[in-house]
Amino acid sequence: MSNLDIFGAILGFALTLMVFSYLIGDNPLFRVAIHIFIGVTAGFVCIIVINNVLLPRMIVPLISGSMEERLLAIIPMLLGWLLLTKISPRLATFGNIPVAFLVGVAAAVAIGGAVLGTLFPQINATIAIFDLTTSRGFDTNKGLQLVNGIIILVGTVTTLAYFHFGTGPQQANPTGLQSLLRGFNQVGQVFIAITFGFLFAGVYSAAMVALVERLSFIVDFLKSVLLPLLSS
């Protein structure tokens, strides 16, 4: 192990303990670690953006590209300069143009993706749940498949209903439709509870792997770096 590696391990060990110190309570060591981390992140992001995006897309075409490439590179550069005016309150109106550009593209991309990638295929999948010809790994017989299909259909519809009609105030004399929606909401909430329970378990699993990795690192460090240093 080189000196650089040892120093790196000590640094990683110290930073890990500084972050873990948050469990005792907020403290200056934790804040120091966070500020170091932010600085490093910003530094990496800055260089990667310059190397990977600005140089090849703006600078290189302007220097060595054809006339067409130069023209194409000038537009984002112009928009980028306009974006900088957002910093100044006096000129901020000009900055609205690149932001409007970004918002327009983002809205269109989001709509296109949601319609073609989620809404159509997932509605189709909900309808096709009763297609008994498709095999599903966990269903051993057609009857069970049908029951599961019904549960999935009910769960999908009631969850959707909860999120779209779920938060209105309760009325004393609900109409038939309102009673139906209230029933949907209650069933939908059960499915949401199960889904969120699953999500909670997933987030916890991810965090637990991180904890195991960090604690393994601490144990390894103490065994391989600190103990030999102390004993020598």
């Binding site: 295929p121 997932q122 999948a125 498709t134 699953f198 997933g202 699993s205 991810a206």
Partner: peptide, 16 residues
Amino acid sequence: ISAQLEPIIRPYYDAN
């Protein structure tokens, strides 16, 4: 995927 994404990705996997 991270374990937290399993319920989100499952509907896309189970689509037909």
